[in-house]
Nucleic acid binder design. Structure first.
Length: 347
DNA sequence: AAATCGGGGCA
DNA sequence: TGCCCAGATTT
């Protein structure tokens, strides 16, 4: 309650005068919330005006052609918002007798309305204590409470929603929700917030621990590349094998590995037999091919997943440079290779 | 759980 | 450039 009190006090002094703050009409609030998804106020403002001008009510919007709606949306991005906006307007007019759902749960069923928007409309228009969690809220809460759970992880999403719900002022949830978002947008900014004039600087964990720049934590979504590694584990009658040293750039630089054949997809034994038919390591030799692991071992690196198969080649004699299997543990190898060596019986 | 969807502002 | 913005939906 203390938290919400300080917040709304700050809000009453510092809030911007924005047009959608003059009303609690659900159509108007809904329109503003859809426009403001992933969009800064400054960018969305002219669209808000032109939409209200062109479509003063949900009826006007419902009766418009989609093409006209999209044209008006042009330049704002995320165009599914415009299509859902239009479709939902028609749905509300035709199926709901032009009446908006008046609960969080009901609002959530509308296309284009997710957790955030349903909470925003429910709290602002219908005084339902449903906490909003947008980018601003993640930032404010993670800093004030010093929470480093990644905000884009499943755990983080649940954790911050629950915390926000605990903090909400149930008497005036709409005011509280807008206050915390405005606070995040103006005071607790992503970069260079002026903590010296912050009303929370006597109790903010991130401020006292100098972690403002570290919070909130966000998982980088790097696309993990899949690679298919086939290692040739040669094994001769006299217990020799072959290791090669990795060179050049990339992973495992200068470490040792069994001769590697990288492929574009997973190999089965017949494909692989054909693949190595003319391999110089096996030149003129007779050998027996078998697969050590039927299912690929998936070795996960930060930026790539290695789908790995170890192919065993029992061979009479190795004609290229080879080493005794007894010495194999002297070589530095990637853990992926090391694990194989530890479990494979060479003799 | 991860990919996709936009365009603009800012350091 | 990289990150963020009053996120939602699909894969």
């Amino acid at each position: 309650m203390r938290f919400s009190k300080t917040l709304t006090n700050w809000y009453s002094v510092n809030k911007r005068e924005l047009p959608w703050r003059q009303t609690i009409d659900p159509y108007t609030i809904w329109l503003s919330e859809i426009i403001l998804q992933q969009t800064q106020v400054k960018q969305g403002l002219p669209y808000y005006y032109s939409f209200l001008d062109e479509f003063p009510s949900v009826h006007h919007l419902a009766e418009a052609d989609e093409e006209k709606v999209l044209k008006l949306w042009q330049g704002l991005g995320y165009y599914s918002r415009a299509r859902n906006l239009h479709g939902t307007a028609k749905y509300i007019v035709n199926e709901l007798n032009a009446e908006f759902p008046n609960t969080y749960k009901g609002l959530l069923k509308l296309k284009g309305v997710g957790d955030y928007t349903a909470s925003a409309i429910a709290s602002i228009c219908f005084n339902e204590p449903a906490a909003v969690v947008d980018g601003n809220v993640y930032r404010v809460l993670s800093r004030y409470f010093g929470i480093d759970t990644p905000i884009n992880s499943t755990k983080g999403i649940k954790e911050f929603k629950a915390l926000a719900q605990e903090l909400i002022d149930k008497e005036m949830p709409g005011e509280h929700n807008q206050a915390i978002m405005e606070f995040g947008a103006i005071q607790c900014k992503p970069k260079n917030p002026d903590c010296n004039i912050c009303p929370f600087n006597d109790s903010c964990i991130a401020f006292s621990e100098h972690r403002i720049t570290e919070l909130p934590v966000k998982l980088k979504k790097l696309k993990v590349k899949k690679r298919y590694f086939n290692f040739l584990v040669l094994l001769s009658e006299d217990f020799n094998t072959v290791l090669e040293q990795r060179e050049g750039k990339g992973i495992w630089q200068n470490l040792y590995q069994f001769p590697l054949i990288e492929t574009e997809s997973e190999m089965d034994i017949e494909e692989f037999r054909a693949k190595i038919k003319d391999n110089e390591l096996l030149n003129e030799s007779r050998y027996r091919l078998s697969l050590y692991n039927e299912k690929s071992i998936i070795h996960k690196l930060s930026h790539q997943h290695l789908y790995t198969k170890f192919w065993i080649l029992n061979i009479d004699e190795i004609k290229t440079k080879s080493i005794p299997v007894n010495n194999i543990k002297n070589y530095p190898v990637p853990i992926l290779i090391g694990n194989f060596i530890d479990t494979f019986r060479f003799k």
